[in-house]
Design a protein around this nucleic acid. Structure first.
Lengths: 147, 147
DNA sequence: GTGAAGATGAGACTCAGTATCGTCTTAGTC
DNA sequence: GACTAAGACGATACTGAGTCTCATCTTCAC
């Protein structure tokens, strides 16, 4: 995602294009992973003296409104932000080795549709977590119980 | 969910059975909807002088550990808690009126099977939460946007 | 009943996020 | 390019959820 495209998308959603917002978008994308507002603030503050904490929160709000970033309601107390993640995050967590894999939205959509149709709910957001053993741990477990 | 069953489930998961934990479980179930720790605290405080705020957080933690309550990661800054039956891990929460319905395991099983088959995971437990508008609220919303 | 482990209540503390305020920047208009 | 109003900025105070500490009390295995 280029800076110009961020600028365009901000402009298209009626958000002002400011140096700070572009810097936050840059840092978010450069991170290449989920980041908290605090992490972004510390990073930006290191490179740009006088970068405000409130500015990071306001910039993130604007970026989310413009669809440039997404806010994930997940774990802990702090929200996680991610650059332009198109899909939701569903997880497959191995209770043995702790590995976490992400599940594609495609798996969840049919259930959501069925539930919506059957119960009359209008579903806006979904959160799906599976817990169990990953392929490697399942194999190891199988060996052990077999042997 | 009777108080005795809450006590049993606490005991089974190695959690102590205390008056406060049972009161929190009661209040949560009586609420019949998603509640924040703060709401529970205020409610319990009104009925039981000297009920501690930290106690509510600790009790909720114990209840979640015992499978008596579930913590929903959604919306605002505060977590939402909801009373839940032992066999049900899936919820449909209305973000407008706060009502929570439980989703039958049958909806989730096919997805779990597909994920297990596709990714080689052995799935032991699944948590599915949907957020949106219940039938009544969706209808009200429709009326408003239409009129 | 006893004692140790663990829970409680009070309240201080941490930390994410918001509000406020005076100043500065953006962007539309000329 | 200059003007101007709306809105963003940085600093910082504030709010509120959740945690930690500590002295005291309760639970529960024996």
């Amino acid at each position: 995602m280029s800076a110009s495209s961020v600028a365009e998308r901000l402009h298209e959603s009626g958000e002002r294009v400011t140096r700070q917002r572009l810097l936050v978008a840059d840092a978010l994308e450069a991170g290449g992973r989920q980041l908290t507002a605090q992490e972004l603030y510390e990073q930006l503050r290191r490179r740009h003296r006088g970068f405000g904490r409130a500015t990071v929160f306001r910039a993130l709000e604007a970026l989310v409104a413009a669809g440039v970033a997404r806010r994930l309601e997940q774990g802990g107390n702090a929200h996680l932000y991610v650059a332009c993640a198109p899909s939701h995050h569903h997880h497959l967590a191995c209770t043995r080795c702790g590995r976490v894999e992400e599940i594609d939205e495609g798996y969840v959509r049919p259930v959501a549709d069925r539930v919506a149709a059957d119960l009359g709910f209008r579903i806006d957001d979904a959160r799906l977590d599976f817990f169990g053993l990953c392929a490697a741990c399942a194999a190891a477990e199988g060996d052990r119980s077999a042997g």
